[in-house]
């Protein structure tokens, strides 16, 4: 591991200034992903700017011009967010997504912002001895011709077939959450759906954030659809594993017909995949297996897979059908 300077800034603005002044510095939050990457040689900053003690650990309801919601500080621990009474009652898919990720210990360490910014678990990205365009731009993609079982089926590029690993991001994408950012020019708000990006020719960039921008919190709007929501994660073992595919779903039914529906997928793309085509196809419909299946198949029209990850197309279709049927029966 490269020698590291360590800075504990007094304020979020001081943290941003530290990253502006040193292009080789990185923010350190809970550390569960970054410390591992330092050991593996995946990243090699020369300075860590420790934001973990900044006062960004509140969970508060707000009600401003854009409507009411829940504001969650960047440093709120994953376990605390999942256990928060308002999250459990108003945003069950957020609680379920968090609880399906990592282990009890890691959820106690990992932060809200860090969860969103964790990096892919593509086996080649994590193995510094292999070519990987995300780790070393221009070096090639080992996953395309290598072990392909985890590869993306939507929105991948020649350069990268990695998937985004966060469960929380998938749930928040379904809820139209907003990310609050602090940069050198002040604060701005970004729809969570625009935080992560597809790989294109620049898979080294996971997000659209400026290099020194700091996530200070997220805002989740209250909505009738969020109350009947859940998160279903399919993986190789029952616990403590990343998703093969996952489905965040929420539905608002009126007289048995879909008034509003949200579907987002994990494990299928370089970003949380909001299935908007499927959503549009379902509005006004009864939630029947064939109807949901047809809507999902529209969304999957452009899915591309190889021999080893073709199962994901079927799996995400069937998991979505099952999850929405369960919600229609009131199971969240």
């Amino acid at each position: 591991m490269r020698a590291l300077d360590y800075l504990r800034p007094e304020s979020p603005a001081a943290a941003v200034a530290a990253l502006v002044s040193n292009p080789n510095a990185k923010y350190l939050g809970g550390g569960t992903n970054l410390v591992d990457h330092l050991k593996l040689g995946i990243v090699s900053p020369d300075e860590l700017v420790d934001i973990s003690r900044l006062p960004l650990d509140d969970i508060q309801e707000y009600d401003d011009g854009g409507g009411p919601g829940l504001r969650v500080g960047a440093n709120v621990r994953n376990s605390d967010l999942a256990a928060h009474p308002v999250v459990r009652s108003s945003f069950p898919l957020v609680a379920r997504a968090l609880l399906s990720g990592a282990s009890g210990q890691i959820r106690n360490q990992a932060t809200t912002a860090g969860n969103l910014l964790q990096r892919t678990r593509c086996v080649y990205f994590q193995d510094a001895t292999t070519p990987c365009n995300k780790r070393v731009p221009g070096s090639g993609c080992s996953a395309r011709e290598g072990y392909g079982r985890y590869n993306a089926i939507l929105g991948a590029s020649d350069a990268c077939v990695a998937t985004h690993p966060s469960d929380l991001a998938v749930a928040l994408a379904a809820l139209d959450a907003t990310v609050v950012l602090l940069g050198p020019d002040g604060e701005r708000r970004l729809p969570l759906a625009e935080l992560h990006r597809l790989p294109g020719d620049l898979p080294n960039l996971d997000t659209t954030l400026g290099r020194s921008e700091l996530i200070t919190g997220i805002e989740i709007p209250f909505s009738p659809v969020a109350a009947l929501s859940t998160y279903r994660k399919v993986r190789d073992r029952a616990s403590y594993a990343f998703a093969l595919v996952s489905v965040a779903a929420a539905v608002h039914l009126e007289h048995g017909a879909v008034r509003d529906v949200r579907i987002a997928w994990g494990g299928v793309a370089h970003k949380p995949w909001r299935a908007e085509r499927a959503e549009r196809a379902l509005v006004g419909q009864q939630l029947e297996p064939d109807v949901i299946g047809a809507a999902v198949e529209e969304e999957l029209e452009n899915a591309a897979s190889g021999d080893e990850n073709a199962y994901k197309v079927t799996l995400v279709r069937n998991t979505t059908v099952h999850t929405l049927l369960q919600l229609a029966e009131g199971h969240r």
Binding site: Y6, G31, V35, D36, D50, S52, G104, Q105, I106, Q109
Partner: peptide
């Protein structure tokens, strides 16, 4: 490497001592 840090279980291998 699970230990209790300020009363909560965490992994000591993923925590930097200085932090």
């Amino acid at each position: 490497c699970t230990v209790l840090l300020d009363g909560r279980r965490e992994l000591a291998c993923l925590a930097l001592a200085v932090a």
